[in-house]
Simulated scan of single mutants.
Amino acid sequence: MEASASLCTPSGVRSKLTFKISGYSFQRGFGVGKYFSSAAFNVGVYFWRIKYYPNEDYVSLSVELATRRGHPSSVLLSFANLCGHFLQPSAYLQDDNLAIECDITVLAAITVPPFDIQVPPSNLSDNLRELLKAGEGTDVTFKVRRESFPAHKIVLAMRSPIFKADLFGSMGDGTRRTITIEDMQPAIFSALLHFIYTDSLPSMGTSDGDDGEEMVKYLVVATNRYAMKRMKVIRESTLCKNLNV
């Protein structure tokens, strides 16, 4: 049988205070519940006081946390075996003077660092891009001039209120599987689908002999048509940056 062991070594701040009581015999029988208090002393980041309750033949002792804000996680305390014992002439009681030794240790809070799990970045846009590229599960096809673009109705409706009304609204035909678009270039519609699925813009370089800037202008028109506000702002920003003064 294999055996294993672990070690826990708590850390803390330790201090010893001597509280001297002069004229012990005059304080005996001071009264039930009445006490004398030491000056506040510091251990760690907290202040403490010793409370001394004189009785006929013995004393009672306690330690009070004088700091109003915050509480230590754990405290070790000892009174040199005085509390609750009958006092006899000893090293602690000489010439009617009582010496109370308080040994106090404030343990530091033991914190366990959280287990850090590295969460990978979201790849939702990559998944949707691959879904569009593969054409899996498509339920509608757009005919744009001589090209066909299969897509998913639910994705289109989620991203564009115009597509939503056209595909699922009361005025639309939700059973249509083929939609023809005659007044748009295939490259523009392809860029529109790319943004719908990935929320990012494709590279708009030269394509089919069309200048890139002209493609951007046509794409702005397409975004207006399908109420793609975010895409419209991005493309308008691109146009402004490319203006030649």
Rank of each mutant, 00 (worst) to 15 (best):
M1D: 14
A3S: 15
A5S: 03
S6T: 07
L7Q: 08
L7N: 11
C8D: 12
C8L: 04
T9C: 15
T9E: 15
S11Q: 12
S11Y: 00
S11E: 13
G12M: 10
S15E: 11
L17A: 05
F19L: 06
K20C: 03
K20W: 07
K20Y: 14
S25P: 12
S25C: 08
F30I: 02
V32N: 09
S37Y: 00
S37A: 09
S37P: 04
S37L: 13
A40C: 06
V43D: 01
Y46F: 15
F47N: 06
I50S: 07
K51D: 05
Y52H: 06
Y53M: 03
Y58D: 01
L61G: 06
S62I: 04
V63G: 02
V63R: 08
V63I: 15
E64P: 05
L65D: 06
L65I: 03
T67P: 10
R69A: 13
H71V: 12
H71S: 08
H71E: 04
S73Y: 10
V75K: 11
V75F: 07
S78W: 09
F79D: 01
N81M: 15
N81K: 14
C83H: 15
G84S: 09
Q94D: 14
Q94I: 08
D95H: 09
N97E: 13
N97R: 13
A99M: 03
E101G: 13
C102Y: 14
I104H: 15
V106F: 13
L107C: 11
I110W: 06
F115K: 14
I117W: 00
I117A: 05
I117E: 07
I117M: 03
V119K: 05
S122K: 05
S122I: 00
N123K: 10
N127R: 12
R129F: 15
L131P: 00
G135M: 10
G135Q: 02
E136V: 07
G137Y: 03
T138A: 07
D139H: 00
V144D: 13
R145S: 06
R146G: 01
P150F: 00
A151S: 11
K153R: 09
V155L: 11
A157W: 01
A157K: 10
M158Q: 09
M158G: 13
P161N: 06
I162A: 03
I162K: 01
I162W: 15
F163M: 11
A165S: 08
D166Y: 13
L167E: 08
L167I: 11
L167D: 01
G169S: 13
G169L: 13
G174M: 04
T175A: 10
I179G: 04
T180N: 08
I181M: 10
E182N: 09
M184Y: 09
P186I: 06
A187M: 11
S190N: 15
S190G: 09
H194Y: 14
F195S: 03
Y197G: 01
Y197A: 04
T198N: 08
P202Q: 10
S203Q: 13
G205W: 00
G205E: 04
G205H: 01
E213I: 08
M215W: 02
M215A: 04
Y218E: 00
V220K: 03
T223Y: 07
Y226V: 02
A227F: 05
M228K: 00
K229D: 15
K229S: 06
K229L: 04
R230M: 01
K232N: 07
K232S: 02
V233Y: 14
E236K: 01
S237F: 08
L239D: 03
C240G: 13
N244D: 12
V245A: 10
